[in-house]
Structures are given as C-alpha cells and as structure tokens.
C-alpha cells in the first residue's frame, strides 16, 4: 500500500514517478441515501504514467467512478485521492479548481462545444485554469500555439479542418479535437469515458494509439472507461468493476488483469 500525505496543496501535489496518481480506499457511493450502492471499492491505485482500462457493463458504475475521480461527487465512505489530494477535503469550489488544473476529460460523443471553433474548443480548459494556461503558453509560446501543436500531433491542423465548424467534423476528428483539449496544459490525469464507442474498429485502434502517444509525450496517466472488453489488451492494466464489487464485499484485494 502506497502512503500519500493527506493534505497536499494542488500546486505541489504532483506525484513523482512510480507514485500513485489515483488512490481509492474503502470507497462506497450511492446516489441517494438508502438507494443501491453503485461503487464499492476496497482498494484501487493507479500509478503515474499508467494506462488503465476500466471495464464493466452498463450500470456497473463506470461513469460514477469517473465522477468520483473528477471530484464531481464525493463518496459517503472512504477516500478518493488524486495526486495525493483527498478530494473530499477540498470543498466544491476547490474540487472544481483541482479538476480544471489537473484532469483532462474525453467523452463518448458530443465532446465539443458546437459554437466554438476547433482551436477555441481545444483551449477551453485554459480559460478555467491559470495553471494549465501557463503550462500551455510555456510549452509553445501561447495557448493557441500549443493547441495547434497538439492538433498537429493528432493530424488535425490542416487549414481546411481548422476552418470547419466543429459540427461538420467526422466523429473521429471530433474525438481527436477532444483529445487535444484533454491534453492541453499537460494535466496529470486524463479520463476518457468511452471515447471510441462511436468509431469503427480501424479508427478506434488508430485513436487509441494516438491517445497513448500523446499521453506518453505529456506524461499523463490515462483512465479509460469502456464496455468493449476487446480493447483491454492494449492497456497496461484492466479493471473489471463488477468483479471488484463482488470481491470487495468479501474484503479481498482488488482484482486485476493484465
């Protein structure tokens, strides 16, 4: 078990190599008091730079787990630490700020704000996080230049693509723009919520490879949620949520598969 200090400020809590970026301990969560427990995890650690695949059928609590990791909700029991920070200790505004500074998200679909351009969509997180804004500007001179750099890596910087309305992009292109947005300002944790479910098999594989490359380049940890078990072998580690619940009830160590 990795020990991490309780109160680490968001600015100084970047976990070092080999340290856990995510750490859940005895976490139980239900949406309402008295309703069924959706998340019941005894132990889950994700170390820095790790690419983890979280699998489970619909209703197994995948999205709820992401909400816990993003600090949108806090568990009734147990503790969720991201970069050593106990999210419950931050309060609502603190968690929002923490999320803006340290976590990048990619959704399944409708990832982009329809009335913003490609570049505006990518730089969006920098509008809510000075930390990411500074890091993006430091990397390429300005946030827009950093957005273009990321889009170039994702093969999305052609002028005809940049000038297009985001709603006119293909789903695959939209997902790559979303990936650039999740990575801008070098967040330590990237959370992807079924980002490939709308892509065909070839594009799915290509997108995952691109995402891996960029996460590696930015040294980001990736938590990738999907119900598509076929993707699991591509990742460093795969976690089965339903299995975790069952085993957790017997208070056993977390099940893992490689």
């Amino acid at each position: 078990m990795t020990s991490i200090a309780e109160s680490v400020s968001p600015e100084s809590n970047v976990a070092g190599a080999g340290e856990n970026v995510v750490s859940l301990a005895d976490v139980r969560f239900a949406w309402n008091a008295g309703s069924a427990i959706v998340i019941d995890i005894h132990r889950l650690d994700i170390s820095r730079g790790e690419r983890v695949f979280v699998r489970g059928p619909s209703g197994s609590g995948k999205s709820t787990l992401l909400s816990l990791l993003g600090g949108m909700v806090t568990p009734q029991n147990g503790m969720v630490r991201v970069l050593g920070q106990n999210l419950a200790a931050l309060g609502g505004v603190g968690r929002d700020r923490f999320r803006a500074d340290h976590i990048g998200f990619i959704f399944q679909m409708f990832n982009l704000i329809p009335y913003l351009s490609v570049v505006e969509n990518v730089v969006l997180p920098c509008g809510f996080s000075q930390r990411r804004e500074k890091r993006a500007a430091k990397e390429a001179g300005s946030v827009e230049a950093e957005a273009l750099r990321l889009l170039t890596h994702l093969d999305m910087a052609a002028p005809d693509i940049l000038e297009r309305r985001v709603t006119d992009l293909s789903v695959g292109q939209q997902q790559r723009v979303a990936a650039a947005r999740a990575l801008i300002g070098a967040p330590e944790l990237v959370i992807a919520d079924e980002p490939t479910s709308a892509l065909d098999a070839d594009r799915r594989l290509a997108f995952i490879k691109l995402l891996f490359q960029e996460c590696e380049r930015e040294q980001a940890t990736l938590a990738f949620v999907s119900h598509d078990a076929g993707l699991a072998p591509l990742f460093d580690r795969a976690i089965e949520l339903t299995a975790m619940k069952r085993t957790n009830s017997a208070d056993k160590p977390e099940p893992e598969s490689r």
């Binding site: 993003g70 959704f107 982009l112 704000i113 969006l124």
Partner: peptide, 15 residues
Amino acid sequence: REMAILRSVGARPMH
C-alpha cells in the same frame, strides 16, 4: 451536454 463539458474543464456550477 454543453454544460457538462464546461464542468469537465473546470467551470463551477456558479459559472
């Protein structure tokens, strides 16, 4: 959905 995206990039409910 637009609001959820904004929340994911750090917008607060008050925003």
